[in-house]
């Protein structure tokens, strides 16, 4: 069986998480940039549910190596649920800054895990020699 080293489910899921957090970072940066723009509506990026669904799907596949993770690309949608200020803007800077911190940590977690995945592969290839 052919098996691309980084095409197994774990690495694909981590890559999808990195894509998702990167897209969310752009949306949060845009919300923050528009904190003083009248009638602006904040954008929200949700990718966790789609990723969890794809992982459930992959778990049912016969082999983890052959399992293809089908994650739709992260997409933003306008969030009209947040309360609006007098100028019609619904960005809360506190909410955006906490979401920014949480998103940066999630991105860091995914990238650390992917890095350790790559280290494992390297250890296997080199027999745990340095370099």
């Amino acid at each position: 069986m052919k098996c691309n080293l980084l095409a197994e489910v774990t690495s694909q899921a981590l890559a999808a998480a990195l894509r998702g957090t990167a897209a969310r970072q752009a949306a949060l940066a845009n919300n923050i940039a528009n904190v003083d723009t009248p009638t602006f509506t904040r954008t929200e990026v949700e990718f966790e549910q789609a990723l969890a669904g794809a992982l459930r799907e992959a778990r049912r596949a016969p082999s983890h190596c052959a399992g293809q993770l089908r994650v739709p690309p992260p997409r933003g949608h306008e969030d009209h649920s947040a309360p609006r200020r007098e100028d019609g803007n619904n960005v809360s800077i506190e909410r955006e800054m906490t979401a920014l911190a949480r998103n940066a940590l999630a991105h860091r977690a995914a990238s650390e895990l992917l890095a350790s995945r790559i280290r494992m592969l390297r250890a296997v290839i080199h027999g745990n020699r340095r370099g």
């Binding site: 970072q25 940066a29 923050i32 940039a33 800077i93 920014l100 998103n103 940066a104």
Partner: peptide
């Protein structure tokens, strides 16, 4: 706030 968002993107 914008500077903080920029720094977060840079760290990522």
């Amino acid at each position: 706030a914008n500077a903080a968002a920029f720094n977060a993107a840079k760290a990522m």
